[in-house]
Amino acid sequence: MSIPAIAPLTFVDDWADAFPDLLPGLWVSIKVTLIALVIGLPLGLLLAIANGARARVVRWLAVLLVEIGRGMPALVMLQLLYFGLPTAGVVLSSFWAAGLGLGLTTAAYTSEIIRGGLNAVPQGEVEAATALNLSRTDTLRFIVVPQGLRVAIPALMGFAILIFQASSLAYTIALPELLAQAYSWGSSSFKYLPVLVLAGLMYAVITIPAGLLTERAERRLSRHL
């Protein structure tokens, strides 16, 4: 009676075969995440500022956009941009549909994170700026926004990790990111378990150090707040 091979040992051979195919997918996932952050963080800042605007229409519009963005699942957003927009004559590649969709989701969620940071700025500093005859724009630019973003940095870093993980949703719109490459390799070899475990480990290689960096940034910044 033969003794079955230990699973981790058999996994190693499968991982060696699958890794070259999965590595380009990991790079695609990283690029989509970067695009989403480049789009989403500035939009999130604008929405956070608009949320505190004096004009009621601007404030209500910002709240409406944020609630729609937070209420719509990221997967639905990706499907809408990739499959829905072509019916209106706008065609996006799977890469840009994923980047824009995750970027809009990022904007909605980070706007609340940034708004919390802006609200954490001591009111006394805002009043001091008013006493110095600084305009509302200059007060935001030189006092509120820099300090508010500093407070929000750890939470924004943590959300960036979540967006990297959410990039796996892009496999549903035919983007050859990490999970899509894992499924492709699994369908051709009929070995889904080892390749999906490898994909999970490759995500972890990025997210675990990023999480530790986030904790370190939070501890370091908290000493100055």
Score class of each variant (00 low, 15 high):
Thr87His: 14
Gly89His: 00
Val90Ala: 06
Val91Gln: 12
Val91Trp: 06
Leu92Val: 00
Ser94His: 07
Trp96Cys: 09
Ala97Tyr: 01
Ala98Glu: 06
Leu102Glu: 02
Gly103Tyr: 01
Gly103Arg: 01
Leu104Ala: 01
Thr105Trp: 13
Thr106Lys: 01
Tyr109Ala: 03
Tyr109Leu: 10
Ser111His: 04
Glu112Phe: 01
Ile113His: 05
Arg115Thr: 09
Arg115Leu: 11
Pro122Ala: 14
Gly124Asp: 10
Glu125Tyr: 12
Ala128Cys: 05
Thr130Pro: 03
Ala131Glu: 03
Arg136Ala: 15
Asp138Phe: 11
Thr139Gln: 11
Arg141Cys: 07
Arg141Gly: 08
Arg141His: 13
Val144Gln: 12
Gln147Thr: 06
Ala152Pro: 02
Ala152Arg: 03
Leu156Val: 08
Leu156Thr: 03
Leu156Gln: 03
Leu156His: 03
Met157Tyr: 06
Phe159Met: 14
Ile161Lys: 01
Ala166Met: 13
Ser168Leu: 08
Ile173Gly: 04
Ala174Ile: 11
Pro176Ile: 01
Glu177His: 08
Leu178Ala: 06
Leu179Cys: 09
Gln181Leu: 07
Ala182Trp: 07
Tyr183Arg: 15
Gly186Ser: 15
Ser189Arg: 09
Phe190Leu: 15
Leu193Ile: 14
Leu193Thr: 14
Leu196Ile: 15
Leu198Gly: 04
Tyr203Thr: 03
Ala204Val: 10
Val205Cys: 10
Val205Lys: 02
Thr207Ile: 08
Ile208Phe: 11
Pro209Tyr: 04
Gly211Glu: 03
Leu212Asn: 10
Leu213Lys: 04
Thr214Met: 09
Glu215Tyr: 11
Glu215His: 14
Arg216Met: 13
Arg216Asn: 09
Ala217Asp: 03
Leu221Gln: 07
Leu221Glu: 08
Ser222Lys: 15
